[in-house]
Computed example of a mutant assay.
Amino acid sequence: MAESIYLPEAATKAEKYEAILPQVEALISTETDTYANLANVSAVLKEAFGFFWVGFYLVKEGELVLGPFQGPLACTRIKLGKGVCGTSWEKAETQLVPDVDAFPGHIACSSASKSEIVVPGIKNGEVWIVLDVDSDLLDDFDYTDQEYLEKLMQLVDKYC
């Protein structure tokens, strides 16, 4: 069991992602409990990047229900098509939002959240989970985040 992750000093964002992806795979590939794996993935992302909020919502009974996360209190349930998470679930695609206040129907779980990226996890052609990452800075996410978080979610889909 890993108790820490290796993060290269003075690394670019892409280099950090490249460093953590194999570590995440090693961490979650040997653990069979989905919630334990999701909790550790949240912790790794929070530690590596210092995101304001990072966590998962799982599709349950026709809603997204809060799962493991790191950060302040969060919304517990989100309906299909509502907010950034519900939109990602409905469209089955990543939502990259530079300014959450400009996103139609944004759900403000925290007024400190300024930008957001949500990446769906897909099994058997259906969204079963979304990864939600919030920043307290405007325009804090880019296509590098999208590319690597989508790769990370492929690991989550495979092992969780």
Rank of each mutant, 00 (worst) to 15 (best):
A19K: 05
L45F: 07
P98D: 07
L73F: 07
M153E: 08
K91P: 07
E116F: 13
A36I: 09
Y57L: 02
D145E: 02
L66Y: 03
D157M: 09
Q146M: 13
S29H: 03
L66I: 06
L45M: 06
S115L: 07
V119D: 13
D145R: 03
Q23V: 01
M153C: 14
S111Y: 08
E3M: 04
C160G: 05
E47F: 02
Y148K: 09
W53H: 06
E9R: 10
T32L: 09
V54Q: 09
E116C: 14
V100M: 07
A26D: 00
G55S: 04
F56C: 04
G50D: 06
G125F: 14
H106Y: 14
T34A: 13
P98Q: 04
L96S: 03
K158H: 05
E116A: 12
K13Y: 06
Y143S: 12
D132Q: 11
F51W: 09
C109F: 12
P8D: 00
S42K: 08
K79R: 15
M1A: 06
L152R: 06
Y143G: 05
D134F: 10
D101N: 12
S88C: 15
G121L: 07
K91N: 13
G55I: 08
Y17I: 09
A92V: 12
D157Y: 06
A43C: 01
A112Q: 14
I20Y: 04
